[in-house]
């Protein structure tokens, strides 16, 4: 079952790291209402991460629960895509990241509902409703900023340009993903990109933004090879658990 463990870990780590980044906005968002919305989305992502990591722990069968997986792995053991670990930057960068991620998660979870793995299908059924809201929220801001003032347009375009290369990793199908697809557990990532572009491109167009050209495609997150940002994120996230191993809270 190690293929399935590894695959569920990828999904769970995406959600966990995204939640951690979004939570960094708490009390720092441009408006009070937006503060609540970002915290809301962070909580959704964390909820999905908990379900997925708990399941991954059971699949592994080595006695690691959601906490052990979240707090006691080093960056080389994390399987999240690079997109979610990128720093928040300004509000436009955060919205570009969230928009690209949520549009992907939406399609991912939508397809997973028919997975041959029942547990995964059940988790996806719950998560896809939340994802729909995340896409909606991020798309709204991409349009607003893109079609806002000259300055907000400039920043939104810069944000999309910055984030775009990292989206290719979401649709890279490696051997493990291919095996998982063969068993009917989850669609191969490469088969999701057309639908993703179908969701993303119209929003960019309405926002008067130029869709970046495809080119440089950094990857490695799925193999535990991350950007320099992840270990700092983990150091902050894990410090208490590592200082007091075995403590209960």
């Amino acid at each position: 079952m190690s293929d399935l463990f590894e695959f569920v870990l990828r999904l769970g780590d995406d959600a966990l790291v995204a939640a951690q980044r979004l939570a960094e906005w708490t009390s720092r968002a441009p408006e009070m209402e937006e503060d609540v919305a970002l915290a809301n989305i962070a909580l959704d992502q964390l909820g999905a991460a908990r379900l997925l990591l708990s399941y991954a722990g059971e699949l592994e069968g080595a006695g690691r629960d959601e906490d052990a997986l979240a707090y006691l792995r080093g960056d080389r053991e994390f399987r999240n895509c690079l997109l979610v670990e990128l720093p928040n930057g300004d509000f436009a960068v955060t919205m570009a990241k969230l928009f690209c991620l949520a549009a992907y998660q939406r399609i991912r979870y939508d397809r997973l509902v028919t997975s041959t793995d029942e547990r995964l299908a059940a988790i996806a059924a719950k998560a896809r409703k939340e994802s729909a809201y995340h896409v909606d929220h991020a798309a709204l801001w991409v349009r607003r900023l893109g079609d806002g003032t000259e300055e907000s347009h400039r920043r939104m375009q810069a944000a999309v340009d910055e984030v775009w290369p990292y989206t290719h990793e979401l649709f890279a199908t490696d051997e493990l993903a291919a095996r998982v697809a063969e068993r009917g557990i989850a669609a191969a990532p490469s088969t999701l990109r057309e639908e993703w572009l179908g969701a993303v491109e119209p929003v960019l167009a309405t926002a008067t933004l130029t869709r970046p050209a495809d080119g440089w495609a950094p990857g490695g997150g799925r193999d535990g090879v991350h950007t320099e940002h992840l270990s700092y994120l983990l150091a902050e996230m894990q410090v208490l658990h590592r200082a007091h191993p075995g403590a209960r809270w």
Partner: peptide, 21 residues
């Protein structure tokens, strides 16, 4: 009540703040 730049955002914010979706 809440502050929002337009009706669309007001609706979304209201959903978060007052109905928990």
């Amino acid at each position: 009540s809440l502050h929002a730049p337009d009706a669309e955002l007001a609706l979304r914010n209201a959903r978060d703040l007052y109905t928990r979706r």
